[in-house]
Nucleic acid binder design. Sequence first.
DNA 1: TATAATATTGATAATCGTTCCGATTACCAA
DNA 2: TTGGTAATCGGAACGATTATCAATATTATA
Lengths: 130, 130
Amino acid sequence: MKNEVKYKRSRQRERILALLRSTDLHPTAGWIYDQLKGEFKGLSLSTVYRNLSILLGQGLIARLEYGGTFGRFDGNVSPHYHFICEQCDAVLDLPLPVDLSLNKKVDAATGCQTKFYRLEFYGICDQCQG
Amino acid sequence: MKNEVKYKRSRQRERILALLRSTDLHPTAGWIYDQLKGEFKGLSLSTVYRNLSILLGQGLIARLEYGGTFGRFDGNVSPHYHFICEQCDAVLDLPLPVDLSLNKKVDAATGCQTKFYRLEFYGICDQCQG
DNA sequence: TATAATATTGATAATCGTTCCGATTACCAA
DNA sequence: TTGGTAATCGGAACGATTATCAATATTATA
């Protein structure tokens, strides 16, 4: 079961991680590709997906799933909640404190062993009201 | 903006809804298709998807999205939380009381207008420990 | 520095869940 | 009945993602 993979440096992967850490847009793979294809002549979309996959496995980024047909990525892996605007599809980080006691409540009530939880709010964002 | 659609009865749609209400497995479209294709000779997978879509629009069922590549459906539309087992992929309903004050907290902190929220716990379920 | 070993790349094909389409059928009101 | 219009089936089409593979880039070692 030894599944050790030794990664070599990759300029593409380093830029993808830096880009994700520099924005709070929670972008899609396609957006990342569009941003970097000027910088890396001949960049392939599969390279973006491959490296997102590696970064996910390393726990350096997170993947969000919201109803839509595509995934979004987050360079902020510290626990926090999200708000999803149903009108403009923006994903916002919420400044709420994260309640860590919930895991224990679930475990006590069910016998399950909770590792983490996701909390997402849906509605209309600040910008879209008016 | 008048988008009134008059639906005719459909035995397939009625069975899909009844099936979803009779189980807490949170099944996929494929599972529903497998269950009903014996009952409806020549049932089409697209019929299952179309009717799931209509039922969603009517608010009679809910669609869940969890990391995987496919959606799951829930015949229980009253607010409740879910636990997702990372080992067996089961989705369990949680017997926790739903906190309705969270919406207001978010709205107060952000200026957003929250309609609802989703709370999902991830870990190892009762069955899979041992 | 030179070289061997191997991870990474870009291009493309393949996959998967889902939606769309056209021809036909079923339902319902008049 | 009959006309109007959803609903159906089956398959093609779709979009996001993953797999394949020869060429290239990176690293470890000599």
